[in-house]
Computed example of a mutant assay.
Amino acid sequence: MQPLTLYVNNMECNDASGKGIAAALLEEFAHRGVLAEKRMSMGSDGALIMTGKHNGVAAIIQHENPHMVNVHCVAHRLALCTSQAAAKIPYMQKHQQILTYLFYYFKGSSKREMRLKHIQDILDDPCLTIKEIHSVRGLSYFNALTTVFRTLDSVLTYLAELHSTGKDPIASGLKKKVKLDLCVADLMKVKAMKSPHCKLLQEHLQPSKFKGQHDITSINFNLKNLTATFIDALIDNILTRFP
């Protein structure tokens, strides 16, 4: 017998509480004739609504089958542990803040997004949208870093353009935060450390590989120490949160 993953239905819940979601699920089970003893396990993102001891979805469904196993999604657990481990490292904490600032700056104005895309076209950069970092999505941090690096020349050009007008103090502030001697070198370090292909990225993400119009200063790569610090924090977090 080979296990399969099948999507039965995509339901819309008008009541997003634990009781409301549980009621919708139980109604769907009844409609499809799924007996309580056949519900062997339930997986979720670990939110209180899903896993609460009394009014969580799993607890309510377990009233009909106490033997049903409640599983906190492994991917979500790993994402939580990695994000919290990264928060203990100044390099990562700094870049998460910078990337978050950039995301909300461009997200807040369609005019800014359109201008950035126009600059990307002119500079022959990939037409990418700045991505948001999600604490429960395992690769969101790495994807956000990758996006900024791939279109870094356009981002710096846009911020410099707005800074020169003196009419956008937020752009001027971001320009300082994303300045090369503060952000770019560290961006490369963190990107290499977060990638599953650290050695390849370490070789690739060097100043000579960056073809933009903005100069990049030399990089003091200390990948080994950064990686060791992150791994130690990650292991400690996993053992503490999920013994």
Rank of each mutant, 00 (worst) to 15 (best):
H76T: 01
D181F: 10
D168S: 06
Y101F: 09
S172F: 06
P90K: 04
Q97H: 14
T82R: 01
Y101P: 00
F149P: 04
L128K: 11
S140V: 07
S172V: 06
R115A: 13
H72Y: 11
T157I: 05
M68Y: 07
C127R: 13
V136Y: 04
D121I: 10
I170V: 14
H72I: 03
S154T: 07
R150V: 06
R137H: 03
S154M: 05
A87H: 04
L116F: 02
K179V: 12
A171E: 10
L162V: 11
D168Y: 14
Y158K: 09
H134F: 11
D181P: 06
L99H: 04
D125G: 00
R112T: 15
S164C: 11
H72W: 10
L159I: 10
L174G: 06
L156F: 03
T100V: 11
M92T: 04
L128V: 10
L128R: 13
S140D: 02
I98V: 12
R77T: 13
Y104A: 07
V155P: 11
D168W: 14
Y105F: 14
A144S: 12
T129D: 12
F106V: 05
K111L: 15
V71H: 09
A85D: 01
R150F: 09
G138L: 14
Q97N: 14
L159M: 12
S140H: 04
L128I: 13
V155F: 07
R112S: 15
L145Q: 14
L162T: 08
V74W: 08
L159T: 09
Q93L: 10
L123F: 09
G108V: 09
